[in-house]
């Protein structure tokens, strides 16, 4: 076990508290501008339907960035993340005028000195949206 962040004792199998982010069309618009990814499947419903999607979908990288926020909040800041990876298994579907959930949780997979590996879970509307999601953090 290591003393991580002062008060919390962390060991393999420790489950971190679940957190729910909200995603809506406004957030997709803001992320498109902040990231430079202006793919219309993330903003234009007509276009998204025309390419066979069920509706506008969130950028996979927005989903991953929010999971990153979950990790950095827990680990004590943006500098803590050394490795971060995920597979985009299902899209986060964002209908107009709605806020959909991104529900994130994590389990400690490995503790190696001050390096901690987390296995991450991310779902939206009960559907797993990221697979093989892992982060390595270090104080």
């Amino acid at each position: 076990m290591v003393d991580f962040g002062g008060a919390r004792m962390i060991e393999v199998g420790t489950v971190l508290p679940e957190r729910v982010f909200e995603i809506d069309r406004e957030l997709l618009f803001a992320y498109a501008n902040a990231s430079g990814d202006q793919n219309p499947i993330h903003q234009n419903e007509e276009f998204a339907l025309s390419v066979g999607l069920p509706n506008v979908i969130a950028h996979g990288m927005l989903t991953m960035a929010l999971v990153g926020k979950y990790v950095t909040d827990w680990a004590g800041g943006s500098a803590s993340v050394k490795e971060f990876g995920a597979r985009f298994v299902k899209p986060v579907i964002v209908p107009a005028g709605q806020k959909v959930d991104l529900t994130v949780s994590a389990t400690v997979a490995e503790v190696d000195g001050d390096r901690i590996s987390l296995t991450l879970s991310a779902t939206s509307a009960g559907v797993k949206v990221l697979g093989m999601a892992k982060a390595v953090v270090q104080k």
Binding site: A30, D37, M61, G68, T72
Partner: peptide, 27 residues
């Protein structure tokens, strides 16, 4: 650029970029 990326995520730390910020350059 860092401020706007952080703002989308509700991140108040802006002295350094969030961990996935580099995607806006590499993609």
């Amino acid at each position: 650029q860092i401020d706007s990326f952080a703002s989308v995520l509700g991140e108040t730390q802006t002295d350094i970029a969030p961990p996935t910020f580099s995607i806006r350059i590499t993609l």
